[in-house]
Design a binder for these strands. Sequence first.
DNA 1: GCCAACGTTGGC
DNA 2: GCCAACGTTGGC
Length: 137
Amino acid sequence: MAYWLMKSEPFKYSWDRLVEDGRTHWDGVRNHQAANNLKAMKNGDLAFFYHSNEGVEIVGIAKIVKEYYPDPSDASGKFGMVDVAPVKKLAKPVPLKDIKADPRLEDIALVRQSRLSVQPVGEAHWNILLDMGETKL
DNA sequence: GCCAACGTTGGC
DNA sequence: GCCAACGTTGGC
């Protein structure tokens, strides 16, 4: 079981939309590093759902329900996508500023590689973030 | 709206 | 293969 973090701008695709839809295609990734992370995802892996630009916080937990396959929106055929479904909304969203303020999280990709839209989260970091979100799985 | 970070493109 | 120019992401 691996853990991830996926970013979405809420006015493009929000956590509430994901809950309404039940599941969605995580398409549109055009960055190789992010795509490599998508490729490494396995069914059942969990991912934090992060709102960028607006909110700027982790709002929920999603799970991978379909592993990497071609993204039809990519004409070049180089990039793929996964399908995700909502698992649980965080009892308390975890804002980026709190993540930055916690020395235990200073090495997290969210801080160190702020532009990467799909990133791995270590188990220790995952548990800290769950704690900060006052959420139990 | 600005700007830093960073990926990509293209001239040489 | 280097690097300047340019585009995009995303925090503030």
